[in-house]
Design a protein around this nucleic acid. Structure first.
Length: 223
DNA sequence: GATTGATCATGC
DNA sequence: GCATGATCAATC
């Protein structure tokens, strides 16, 4: 069991120490087995990094390093540093959102400080052969935060107005709303067109690839 | 090839 | 069902 890092520099030092290792090596350090496929282990890489860096495990609705105010996110990239997938942020509240502001939102809280850990994860690479990239701490620039806020406000307003079913992955420039549930049969409460309670798919906020790609290019000087 | 909607594991 | 961790895979 790895203890939580005491401060930010300790966290960054740990992250930098595992950069360059492949997942088989990191798994071995933690006495874990590498799955042959991620089909039934979609969160495995994220969990492996949490263990390795001393994040408080579990399903608590808070940041990975609460005392440091830092969220850990792994992001699969190709050899050119382009993200291969969108990045899940958090589940979306669909009821009781009257008066909820961007400042109070879980999206803003989660993204205020993120330790990004790129993983070279091209499909042709076996899971164990995928390589941990250079980790870095990110805080949204004023411009980035404005983009996030604009999309968040647009999406949340539609939800508040009972138009959750009209929001799809195309809504928003940098954030998108997509299903986030066990399957298409999982349902939760939401607001209908006439303000009545309805059942709909649970949704989550995701960062689009273009947005995370910009973050990576800026960090690695490839912009 | 990129994108959107669907899905998998786990611990309450 | 919700919240954690995301990626899969059918479709565009």
């Amino acid at each position: 069991m790895i203890l939580p890092p005491k401060n930010l520099s300790e966290l960054l030092a740990r992250a930098q120490q595992i950069a360059g290792l492949n997942l088989a090596q990191l798994a071995a350090q933690n006495e874990m087995k590498v799955p042959e496929s991620l089909v039934r282990h979609k969160g495995w890489i994220g969990n492996l990094l949490e263990l390795s860096l001393g994040a408080s495990a579990g399903s608590k609705p808070e940041q990975d390093f609460p005392e440091l105010g830092v969220e850990l996110k792994t992001i699969p990239i190709d050899r050119f540093g382009k993200p291969l997938e969108t990045t899940f942020v958090c589940v979306t509240p669909l009821v009781g959102i009257t008066g909820l502001t961007w400042q109070q939102s879980n999206v803003r809280n989660k993204l205020s400080n993120v330790l990004w850990v790129p993983i070279l994860a091209e499909k042709a690479l076996a899971i164990g052969e995928r390589v941990i990239g250079t980790p870095f701490l990110w805080h949204p620039s004023p411009n980035e935060e404005q983009q996030l806020q604009t999309d968040w406000e647009e999406i949340m307003e539609m939800i508040a107005l009972g138009q959750v079913e009209s929001v799809n992955a195309k809504t928003g420039q940098v954030i998108q709303l997509r299903p986030k549930g066990a399957n298409s049969k999982a349902l939760t409460d939401a607001i209908g067109q006439d303000g009545q309670p309805i059942k709909t798919l649970p949704r989550g906020f995701y960062l689009k690839i273009n947005f995370t790609h910009q973050i990576l290019k800026q960090q690695f000087g490839l912009a």
